[in-house]
Design a protein around this nucleic acid. Structure first.
Ligand SMILES: [Mn+2]
Ligand SMILES: [Mn+2]
Ligand SMILES: [Mn+2]
Ligand SMILES: [Mn+2]
Lengths: 220, 220
DNA sequence: TCATAAAATTTGGGATGCCAAATAAAATAA
DNA sequence: TTATTTTATTTGGCATCCCAAATTTTATGA
């Protein structure tokens, strides 16, 4: 009856992947500890075990780096996480800001077959409810070239593709503003003073702070 | 990032519930150990912890008994297990003999809200794919009065309601025979020698051993 | 360079769950 | 009633993850 082994390891892999593909390329023990909200001693111990299992490498300069094997595993977890998020939103009518914690649990269910069937049941979605791409069964991930709305050309129709920040607060903020993935926007005017902008959205003009606009990723 | 605490405890509760409501009412350490496929030392240790948590009682004669609190928890796990089984069969097209191990994992996902939504999504099923009733959110379980097909009246139309044995072997056997939950049967003739019987099923006569017939539970 | 701050590492524990082997107690059979 | 078997319990360990509190190493800035 016992399974769920190395459950924790999966969280390390996923977090490491996200850090490596985020702003900082070099991930040290402190950064990983903070991201995982765990004690550095704990993380160091685990990273060493994962190095033995060939999932990460500990470089000479103390950088913790995913191996190909580790990256592949990380992408499988991310795939599962995002597919479950689609399930929760599309089938169980959760809102996009409510699904993260549940997906954190569901992503650890062990079965490749289950996830293939789930993917088919959901109609092979290409992105999750937050606009993040879903890796295929081989871990291949198609990256969409997006730019922050704050950098978008003026008077050009753009489409909301994903978010630079998926915090609960920001998701709720966007909900209140009525903005969701796939929406069309058009920057009407940028305020030189604070970078805030007037944007055309569903035929009405709304004002977004620079902070908000820089976290909305769009494709032209 | 959760750690599925007391994940194991849930398996103990469920197994204990099933034993208490099975053939033997008195469950001792050996019986529970065998059912869980764990070492008796392990089980004794855990049972003591669960007694501290008021989930079980250790009677003077060494019987291990669920408390009301423990039974309630057990029924919640069973509810989750069975709802996930319905999901797997109805939505992901699994066969009834393929879902058990997956449900063993899914039943531990922690969220009351999720399970309420799943139940609604599935259309409030009353039984799981094996004909076993699904407890309601309060743990109430409506028992269906069934009898083994081997005890059914002759020449009377009966309906397959559930199974006394849900082993993979038996499920596959029934699949081959084309028998599933909800099917109508009629005992045509019982062989006095070995208790085997000729049964009318979907307009054709089939022969079932006494062993098979006694594991098929029907309602008249 | 030298003091200080930050990061890495070591050490000693803790909780949850699990096992094997030894022993004690109870039940059963001869 | 004894001998044998079964069941219960104790003991010492192991694996996985986690923490706090040193201590050591490394980086940084004055
Ligand atoms: Mn998420
Ligand atoms: Mn997401
Ligand atoms: Mn089952
Ligand atoms: Mn079932």
């Amino acid at each position: 009856m016992q399974h769920f082994t190395h459950h924790s390891e999966e969280n390390y892999l996923k977090t490491l992947y996200k850090l490596e593909n985020g702003k900082v390329k070099k991930v040290n023990n402190i950064a990983l500890s903070k991201a995982l909200e765990l004690n550095p001693a704990t993380v160091l111990e685990m990273v060493r075990k994962m190095a033995e299992r060939q999932l990460v490498e500990l470089l000479a300069d103390k950088t913790i780096q995913l191996t190909d094997k580790g990256r592949k595993k990380a992408l499988q977890i991310i795939r599962k996480h995002r597919l479950w998020e689609v399930f929760l939103v599309d089938k169980l009518n959760y809102k996009w800001n409510e699904v993260h914690d549940l997906a954190e649990q569901l992503e650890h269910i062990e079965s490749d077959d289950l996830i293939q069937r789930l993917e088919a049941f959901l109609g092979f979605p290409s992105v999750d409810p937050h606009g993040d791409p879903i890796p295929d069964e081989h871990g291949k991930l198609k990256k969409i070239k997006t730019q922050p709305l704050s950098d978008a050309p003026i008077k050009k129709k753009v489409t909301v593709a994903s978010l630079a920040n998926s915090s609960n607060e920001f998701l709720k903020y966007l909900d209140k503003a009525g903005i969701s993935i796939g929406d069309k926007l058009e920057v009407l005017e940028v305020e030189a003073f604070d970078g805030s902008m007037k944007v055309l959205h569903k035929k009405s003009s709304i004002t977004l702070s620079n902070e908000a606009a820089s976290n909305i990723l769009v494709v032209v």
